[in-house]
Design a protein around this nucleic acid. Structure first.
Lengths: 373, 373
DNA sequence: GCCCGGTAGGAAACCGGTTTTCTGATGGAG
DNA sequence: CTCCATCAGAAAACCGGTTTCCTACCGGGC
């Protein structure tokens, strides 16, 4: 016994040549059969046997070898700024699914502000692990945007536009604001405030623009806008500013679900009730909305489609087409829960004019006992 | 002009041979210098120049070529069951960081129940994209667990044990329960209920076992346990069951933050106040806890360390060590917010016996006006 | 003067695919 | 019967690294 049993010397993967040997052809034939090379002519019988053996052996091409041979990696990288934010989980899922339909894998990387971002790009793109790049919610000061290295790889920007890039994949944000405003207007609200986001962020501006346009169109004063960060704290601050500064305010539209959570706090801390005194609508419909108190009326956005569209766009670039901006056509929808109602008249607007009948809320709409005050 | 300008024929990556040519050596020398091959002897001057040129050209080895040449991919895959759950985002972050410290990349894949799971494994492991695998919260019926293909790649189970695998990386769950129980006991609670998870899930059992042990140790009756799924709905159901079935109950400990959200709903829907009538403590400290109403007292777990430990464990396997179970040593801590207080006496327990002074809450611990009753 | 050992690096095989070019056999047309 | 086209597949180069083995040079000891 000179040779002790080695632990794991053989990877034991089936290789092209294993199939070739078993079928009795060369590996080039196997490769071309499995890849449907149209320039190859083989007997149907041989073709069938190759497929059968590949199946039986569980063959899968070595991604590295394939990439090395000049073909594609068949992988895309998706850079996400914050995996703790559930918005992205839907975009990711949409991207995954579409990628799979095209035989691609999506490699996810968190692209936080700190130095980790420096690494994700070189480790994935420059190490040749991926063919293309999806960048979600790029910050305007993202160092990658200025880098010439970025331009050498097909890429798109998802969920936050980079103006002038011609590679933006987005949704109709103004339409989302209009949907929210029109819903509130239909309920009878006239003074509506917008809890907006940081002015330097394009989506914040787009939602604000849509808000202003929709308000004007309905003949309402679009002046009630306050800004804060996209998180709970920002929402609380902006909501407080609006509730204190805008007289007769009966409804708030927030730019993120996080802001909505802060808004709920702010409203209550001022001793007001939701939706009795103030209705609240939030952009983005996520599972959390169901479990807030009260369950939150939201604007549902096509996030799955957004992820899918981003994959489509980058695959088009891989196919040789020039990059182009894309807007997902699906329209925002109102997901009505219990944070919106007709204005009861926080002050003099006590009279109830007729409005559209309230549609059935999602979830159990058990009657909630109202404690006397 | 026979040859029109081709779009992007040259990847324009710097290769080993580019460096070699510029320095005036062969690529084998460059490779060995950059990889610190101890069997190589070179003049310090040559070594220096190689590094300098590599730096200047922004050289990065092609991952595929490296993997093909028998070396490692320097990538690990992390399978996550649900990217919408923020618990995982912390584990992921911990794993990323530790991996980077060792020069590895983490490729993330969502491993949902549906067919997508079938693809993640072959696409990442069998395509040779990764050297090892971290599997988070494997369900006991996960088809991968039975597959012999899994045993051929180094892997660990994170956050949910697979009994007998000898590859579990976990935290001290019983200690978490004990921490919660002791905290509530110190506040004066005597009847404490556990909102537990599905019995077939190992973490649910571990938390329940720790709960029972801690209760017994304090001479309390550990009988108040109800089960539900780990989400909001399960928490609401189990909490309701406990609040209705267990007399004199003054505190609830929930097994997840999601269950806590459901529990808050259930408590309120029975007309009880938090923390005045019922205190609530949740397992897992996440940002959301700060923004619930009231902000939730939680048991903070070492999730970053868990992710890091999982990476360490799989890297040890790559280094040739046999797999072994790991328990992250960091102890759970109480993150006190406003969902816990001394029991006011939901019924006859009205008298206030002295207890330990309330520690300072994280965040603003603004005095909370208690409305008269 | 010769041999020896260390220093500094060269040469080449190999990993597992892809792709282009080439060849042998067959069969039908003329 | 011969020739050419087509069919079916073979052969080999190549991608960019890693790794093992080899070699040329140099100085010193005997």
């Amino acid at each position: 016994m000179i040779d002790p049993p080695v632990p794991t010397p053989r990877p034991e993967r089936a290789r092209l040549i294993d199939i070739a040997r078993e079928v009795g052809v060369t590996k080039s034939v196997v490769s071309r059969v499995l890849n449907d090379d149209p320039t190859l002519t083989v007997r149907p019988e041989t073709r069938r046997r190759i497929w059968a053996v590949a199946q039986r052996l569980g063959y899968r091409a070595h991604a590295g070898a394939r990439a090395l041979a000049g073909a594609e990696t068949r992988a895309l990288a998706l850079l996400i700024p914050d995996l703790g934010n559930p918005v992205y989980s839907r975009i990711i899922r949409g991207a995954y699914r579409r990628a799979r339909e095209h035989g691609y894998v999506v490699l996810l990387a968190e692209d936080t502000t700190d130095d980790a971002a420096d690494e994700a790009f070189p480790e994935l793109v420059e190490a040749g692990r991926v063919d293309g790049l999806l960048i979600a919610s790029a910050r305007p000061d993202h160092q990658l945007l200025a880098s010439p290295r970025l331009s050498r790889v097909p890429h798109v920007f998802v969920n936050r536009e980079v103006p002038g890039s011609g590679r933006n994949v987005g949704m109709d944000l103004p339409a989302a604001s209009a949907t929210a405003v029109r819903h509130l207007h239909a309920l009878g609200h006239r003074r509506i405030g917008l809890v907006s986001g940081p002015e330097e962020l394009q989506p914040a501006r787009a939602r604000a623009a849509g808000f202003v346009a929709a308000m004007r169109e309905l003949g309402l004063d679009p002046g009630g806008i306050a800004r804060g960060s996209f998180d709970e704290r920002g929402g609380a601050g902006a909501a407080q500013e609006l509730l204190r500064g805008v007289p007769d305010l009966t409804a708030l539209y927030t730019s993120t679900l996080g802001q909505a959570v802060g808004t709920l706090h702010a409203v209550r801390s001022l001793g007001l009730r939701i939706p009795d005194d103030v209705s609240v609508v939030a952009y983005d419909d996520l599972p959390l909305a169901d479990h807030l108190d009260p369950p939150l009326t939201t604007i549902g956005m096509p996030l799955l489609e957004l992820g899918a569209a981003a994959v489509d766009a980058v695959l088009r670039q891989l196919g040789g087409e020039p990059p182009a901006d894309v807007v997902v056509p699906t329209r925002p929808v109102v997901v009505e829960r219990r944070s919106t109602a007709r204005p009861a008249g926080r002050q003099e607007v006590a009279g109830g004019e007729p409005g559209p009948p309230r549609s059935a809320a999602t979830g159990r709409s058990r009657a909630r006992p109202r404690p006397p005050r």
